[in-house]
Simulated scan of single mutants.
Amino acid sequence: MQHFEVTTTLAASPERVFEACLNVEEHTRSMAASSEQAVGGRTHGLLTLGEGVTFEARHFGLTWRLTARITAWDRPRCFVDEQEAGPFQQWRHAHHFAPDGAGGTVMTDVIDFASPLGAIGRIADTTVLSWYMPKLIRSRNAHLARTL
């Protein structure tokens, strides 16, 4: 299993950042480079505890679908989304939000994932996805920093 964390400071309150991260339209805008769109479950508005969404996007020249559900929720400090169906054997993304002391937010993404296919998946995880996934999260967070 792969594990990584990305910490980002944003000039908005934890409540505002929390909501932006649960907003389906904001998520698709932040992932525009991969043509991501919501195609199932909640496709508009804010996700809440227990709700799911299916995103479709292009990565590595292929179209992928991932269905995630909000499995934990502590507004506005943290929420967790986990893959129910999709390309990973396991995907868990915990989003943590803390005041930065100056009116902004320190957001920490904690991600654990594993690809299927045994040894082949582990090779893909360590050689490609271990750098690609953090880059994708940093890009998404840069979008949030610009728009908030």
Rank of each mutant, 00 (worst) to 15 (best):
M1H: 09
Q2P: 01
E5V: 07
E5N: 09
T8D: 07
T8S: 13
T8R: 12
T9C: 00
L10E: 00
L10F: 01
A12R: 11
A12P: 02
A12S: 06
E15T: 10
R16L: 08
V17I: 14
F18T: 02
F18P: 03
F18A: 02
F18D: 01
E19L: 14
C21G: 14
N23K: 08
V24G: 03
E25Q: 14
E26F: 12
E26C: 12
T28Q: 07
T28C: 15
T28R: 03
S30D: 05
S30A: 15
S30R: 05
M31R: 08
M31D: 08
A33Q: 11
S35H: 15
Q37W: 00
Q37L: 06
A38K: 08
G40Q: 05
G40Y: 00
T43R: 12
H44I: 10
G45K: 04
L46R: 07
L49M: 11
L49Y: 11
E51P: 02
G52E: 10
V53I: 11
V53A: 05
V53G: 01
E56S: 13
A57H: 14
A57P: 00
R58F: 09
H59R: 14
G61K: 04
L62E: 10
L62H: 11
T63I: 09
T63H: 10
W64R: 06
L66S: 09
L66H: 11
T67G: 02
R69Q: 13
I70P: 02
I70R: 01
T71E: 03
A72I: 04
D74C: 09
P76C: 05
R77Q: 13
R77S: 14
C78K: 14
C78S: 15
F79M: 04
F79H: 06
D81P: 01
E84P: 03
A85Q: 14
P87T: 01
F88T: 01
F88G: 03
Q90L: 11
W91V: 03
W91L: 13
W91T: 02
H93K: 08
H93M: 05
H93T: 06
H93A: 06
H95D: 09
P99I: 01
D100H: 08
G101I: 02
A102Q: 12
G104W: 05
T105P: 03
T105Y: 04
T108W: 03
A114S: 13
A114K: 14
S115C: 08
S115A: 12
S115K: 00
P116Y: 06
L117N: 09
G121E: 04
R122Y: 05
I123T: 12
A124Y: 07
T126L: 12
V128C: 08
V128S: 06
L129F: 14
L129T: 04
S130C: 10
Y132P: 02
Y132A: 15
K135Y: 13
K135L: 12
K135F: 13
L136M: 15
L136R: 13
I137S: 03
R138W: 08
R138P: 02
S139H: 15
S139D: 13
A142T: 12
A142C: 05
H143T: 11
H143D: 05
L144G: 04
L144H: 11
A145F: 02
A145H: 09
R146M: 05
T147F: 02
T147D: 04
T147P: 03
L148M: 10
